[in-house]
Design a protein around this nucleic acid. Structure first.
Lengths: 168, 168
DNA sequence: ACCTGAACACCGTTCAAGT
DNA sequence: ACCTGAACACCGTTCAAGT
């Protein structure tokens, strides 16, 4: 049982990540993924149940990587915040799938989501509500930046500094 | 010239909004829209250039409605923030298209985007950077709530109160 | 001027058939 | 056990043809 996936299943996740990073979520089609693996699309279904299962794998992978990046970044709130921005803008497609797609919780490794939550609480050093507000601030900044919603002449470094001020 | 659209074009925007609100962005297909108007999909292209043009129309409509709601809400920052949340969560699909889809700026009425920006600056009462940080906080809260990313037992009222505290 | 059917190049997914 | 072609019900968009 558990997560004893076969080697082909592992390769699917691997290649899906590369395809996602190159072409974005819309480019991650079953046919394109199959092509890259020298297969036909229907064959993928012998190893996975649906496209959503692949998305869930990438969400789990994204959460893990994100947590690792924040954990190993500098210890100040400022350093953590800048690490958040750097990772999210360097991996826009993975960020999108990880934090902007409804979580397929049934398919996620147990405790993964809670792990990130408690990490954020630990960093912010206050209650759940404060931690969530801080997360929302980071997420909002990243999301608007990645979607190109700030005007072109906006000074984002300065905006992040202002936001970090609000945390203290 | 300008925006002298025909009556069919007006109806397209109207029906597209209804379809969006009922079925979301993925449900807003050219075929479904045409069906609702008792036409075939190709006929739509005599009145619009592409699906993106419809999206841009909805963005413009969303921005206008949003601005109106915030403008006419209570005057305190708290009242404005709660009005933001209420509108965004009551109109998740329109919010998504208005504030989470890359702006099709070429197709937007001139000055519309700037109008909202200057309204936010006026409300927050400080510089551009501060206004953007405040906007990001509101946006992040709404986006995480609409995507169902907060845990089920999260107290969102309390979270918003904490966020509003950060503004003062 | 407006609407249509047929077509093109795509989707995710199912399933009978092959090895 | 794994892979395939054909098919189903979808996409956005183009275009020749009808009125």
């Amino acid at each position: 049982m558990a997560n004893a996936h076969g080697p082909t299943r592992e390769r699917i996740t691997q290649e899906a990540l590369l395809l996602l990073q190159e072409k974005g979520s819309a480019g991650l089609s079953m046919r394109a993924l199959a092509d890259r693996m020298h297969m036909k699309a229907p064959s993928l279904y012998k190893h996975i149940e649906s496209r959503d299962e692949i998305i869930a794998d990438l969400q789990a992978l994204g959460i893990s990587r994100f947590a690792e990046v924040i954990r190993t970044s500098g210890k100040t709130k400022r350093a953590k915040a800048l690490a958040y921005r750097k990772w999210a803008t360097a991996n826009p497609h993975l960020y999108e799938i990880t934090f902007r797609t409804p979580l397929l919780r049934k398919r996620l490794p147990l405790g993964l989501e809670e792990g990130v939550t408690s990490m954020i609480i630990q960093i912010t050093g206050k209650d759940h509500e404060h931690a969530r507000a801080v997360w929302a601030l980071m997420h909002g900044l990243v999301d608007l930046e990645n979607a190109g919603r700030f005007p072109e002449n906006a000074n984002l470094d300065k905006t992040w500094n202002r936001a970090i001020q609000m945390l203290e």
